[in-house]
Design a protein around this nucleic acid. Sequence first.
DNA 1: TAGATTGTTAATCGATTAACAATC
DNA 2: TAGATTGTTAATCGATTAACAATC
Lengths: 216, 216
Amino acid sequence: MAEKEISQAVISRLPRYLRYLGELKDEGVERISSQELSGLMNVTASQIRQDFNNFGGFGQQGYGYNVEYLYTEIGKILGLDKKHHLIIVGAGNLGQAIANYMNFERRGFIFTGMFDINPELFGKKIRGMEVRPMEEMADFVKQNNVDIAVLTIPKGEAVLVAAKLSDVGIKAIWNFAHVDLAVPKEVQVENVHLSDSLMRLSYMIERYESEVANKE
Amino acid sequence: MAEKEISQAVISRLPRYLRYLGELKDEGVERISSQELSGLMNVTASQIRQDFNNFGGFGQQGYGYNVEYLYTEIGKILGLDKKHHLIIVGAGNLGQAIANYMNFERRGFIFTGMFDINPELFGKKIRGMEVRPMEEMADFVKQNNVDIAVLTIPKGEAVLVAAKLSDVGIKAIWNFAHVDLAVPKEVQVENVHLSDSLMRLSYMIERYESEVANKE
DNA sequence: TAGATTGTTAATCGATTAACAATC
DNA sequence: TAGATTGTTAATCGATTAACAATC
């Protein structure tokens, strides 16, 4: 089947739809129209219908969308019905926080291992998972069919580690290092550049204040 | 001066420009053309020139852009030349990691206080800053001219805390809670929804694998 | 002056919104 | 059947890319 390419903009909205639908589901809501969801989420009903129709019809004329069904289908689109083995590379503050904070199992991600270069951390248990030496990472990925590596290490190391992970067949890298990774196209990369995000916030403050100043 | 509205797309690219320019600056590069930067960053030269020209001419025909000057100007646009007082609300794993991991001072953000509801954490020092009881937050914000609050608390509390922060005049919220905050328009919000990001990664894996499967 | 490269206008492309026929 | 609401086409809007005149 010749799939039409789904735009990045649409994909970025899917997790938010999922969140709202999950809440509606928990509240026991059975069906919802694009109009109602529009009011709730502050996006146009038209966009909602266009977005969902990228993946085929999930709704029914005159009725709307079944919340439970829509929730399940969007989950499938996002691959949340699949199990993914995941390791965290870098057991510092951020790595530990991610391990403890993310509800990996809830979304089908199986926390499988944790690695660091610092010998003081070896054997330490983070969320029940002992920290292993970095040298063991490559073999571990191969032997345990690890799909995803979370990179919570400094940017210098990140480039090298990403290359090594690519070599041993990692499928995807969730990159918290402040650097653009160059990996083969078969390795998917999602960046979380926290400082970029904070700068955007700083910009918003700046802009708002200059707007107010100009109005006077 | 009637400022033209700058698009969100442009703003989102500024921190990345800043990062590359910072690196060039550190390497001692004095000038760069849109063409060279294009090769480095993997965006079109045309887009680079359009982006910069939103803010007036930073370059010079026949020469290109002065790296140091451009770096400084983009920093100013992002408001990084201003000092911002910042508190972290929620001293759990994520809050502590953010406190330790982010180089706040480097970008003009002054880490001023940390709050939690858990009495066991009161007085504990995180990056030299003692954790204070949540009840003190509102007065603290007022007395210390706090500009930014980082929300690293569960989503139920986040909504209430955001409302309280808005009441006492916070300028901006860096929101790590998995919920959309409803705050007055004078309060800027930047969301970091980590689980959304991980879902996008999951989607990319899914899509790549189905592409490969379809090719066979 | 000649060459290089910006600033800026025009063309293209893509995403969002509006409208409405199809249909439950 | 009548009313509601989707699925989908068309219109609009905005962002990106191409082209080139201006100018250092």
